[in-house]
Amino acid sequence: MKNSRYIVVVGCGRLGSHLANCLSRDGNSVVVIDRVEMTLNDLSPDFSGFRINGDATHMAVLKEAKLKNADVLIATTHEDNVNLMVAQVAKKIFHVPHVLARVFDPKREEVYAQLGIDTICPTSVAAGMFLQAVANGGKGQNGTSP
């Protein structure tokens, strides 16, 4: 485990819990934050990190997650604005070196790129893959056939 990093994942939905499980399995120290306690149960039984039940837009919750020690923060809640706020707070106030936010709305993504926030837009990513698949005319490509 030479590359163990301290990673905070905000949001424990399908994406958040999947990322947390993978990152934890790879030997990173992972903290998962979610507003709803139930969703934290979606983590796999071998998840070895910490779980925090709370609203990540509250400073107290981010402090509890010891965000100032974090190497990476990933904001994956289903609300764009929560992700954007948490990402900015992590970058500008807690000085987390690597911050990533999921943003569904491509128009919002542009603006936050200007502010130096790294975003991943599932809409743009999926659109890109669809377009590529269409351009290839459905000719045998990775992931297109079951």
């Binding site: 609300e79 604005n81 929560v82 954007l84 706020m85 948490v86 200007q114």
Partner: peptide
């Protein structure tokens, strides 16, 4: 009533 929305509204309005 949501702080995150208020923040993003203001940032979009002034930046974009």
């Amino acid at each position: 009533p949501n702080d995150q929305d208020n923040l993003v509204v203001c940032q979009l309005a002034s930046l974009k």
